[in-house]
């Protein structure tokens, strides 16, 4: 077994009095994808910023590609690519100029930089738009360019901070295919996401974080087994009926008249719930089944972690 591509050991970061990351440890074996799952403000981006040397950790250690992020930051930077949720490309430059800029700042020679830019534009289907300013690009095109910029030096380790947030479904599928291709070629990826579906599709392992702490980790399969991957939503005619139903089903009311039940025992959960409501004389106005979302994951996880408030 070779050493993991990314290791975090008790990393911690505080902004003024807010603890953004509270002793997070994780490992990403070479050639695998780790999905860092959490809501906004969970500490995902702070974790990525520390591991990419953008931000100094207050405590703990991190190594990327064998290099300590604090002692050998330049070696870490030479080993990584970073693509962010804010699509850090220059609006006033063309797509090609953006890639050449990143290549030049990676100290590639001019001709090599130009050649590499052309390759990436081709690979990401941006050749036709190559010489247009980025401000004329669609959201999906920007993300592809941003990802291209992260790949200029063929880095062995790639950090993707919410790569598909805000993208339309078609662009999301496109980007997923690209990421899968990179992983197939041996790249190690740490990916943050708010979408269970995305982690499910791309990640070999998932670490769920909340308020700067790890609340669960495992493969998608393991996590789903813990959480149940379908949720029943009962909508009631009045808040009073919803409150009564929540009590019967031993759960809580959300958004006024909505009550959710995680389907842990398949259809039996649905049958039992309906029977219980029927026995209590409450009739839901609307019933829907949908796939578990991160919200449900958190609801369940915070119920299970007493120290999580």
């Amino acid at each position: 077994m070779s050493a993991p591509a990314i290791v975090a050991d008790g990393m911690r970061k505080t902004f003024k009095s807010v603890v953004a990351v509270d002793h997070i440890s994780l490992e990403v074996p070479k050639g695998t994808v780790l999905g860092l799952l959490g809501v906004n403000g969970a500490g995902k981006t702070t974790m990525v910023r520390m591991l990419t040397t953008v931000l100094r950790p207050d405590a703990g250690r991190g190594t990327v590609n064998g290099f300590d992020v604090q002692r050998r930051p330049q070696d870490v930077r030479r080993s990584i690519g970073l693509a962010g949720q804010f699509a850090a490309v220059d609006e006033n430059l063309t797509g090609r100029e953006n890639l050449v800029l990143v290549a030049r700042l990676n100290h590639l020679a001019k001709t090599v930089a130009a050649q590499r830019a052309a390759e990436l534009l081709e690979q990401f289907g941006l050749t036709d738009a190559a010489d247009r300013p980025v401000r004329t690009y669609s959201g999906g095109m920007r993300r592809r360019l941003d990802l291209g910029a992260a790949l200029v030096t063929h880095p062995p380790v790639l950090f993707l901070d919410e790569p598909t947030t805000g993208l339309d479904p078609a662009s999301r599928l496109d980007l997923w295919a690209v990421i899968e291709g990179l992983v197939h070629d041996g790249t190690t990826v740490l990916l943050t996401t708010q979408y269970l579906e995305e982690a499910d599709r791309l990640a070999d392992n998932i670490v769920v974080i909340d308020k700067g702490r790890v609340v669960a980790e495992g493969t998608a399969k393991q996590l789903k087994a813990r959480l149940g991957d379908t949720v029943i939503e009962f909508e009631f005619a009045s808040p009073a009926a919803a409150a009564q139903a929540a009590e019967v089903l031993s759960t809580t009311v959300e958004a006024g008249t909505l009550v959710r039940v995680v389907m842990r025992e398949g259809s039996a959960t649905l049958r039992n719930a309906l029977n219980q409501l029927d026995a209590a004389g409450i009739t839901p106005a609307h019933v829907a089944l949908r796939e578990a979302t991160l919200d449900d994951v958190f609801l369940t996880l915070t119920n299970r972690t007493p120290e999580g408030e």
């Binding site: 910023r49 990419t52 040397t53 953008v54 330049q74 930077r77 030479r78 990584i80 970073l82 962010g84 804010f86 699509a87 850090a88 490309v89 220059d90 609006e91 990143v102 700042l105 990676n106 100290h107 910029a149 950090f159």
Partner: peptide, 13 residues
């Protein structure tokens, strides 16, 4: 604001 400095900081420049 646009996140460009963030990217620059992750480069070996």
């Amino acid at each position: 604001n646009k996140g460009l400095l963030e990217r620059l900081k992750s480069l070996p420049m």
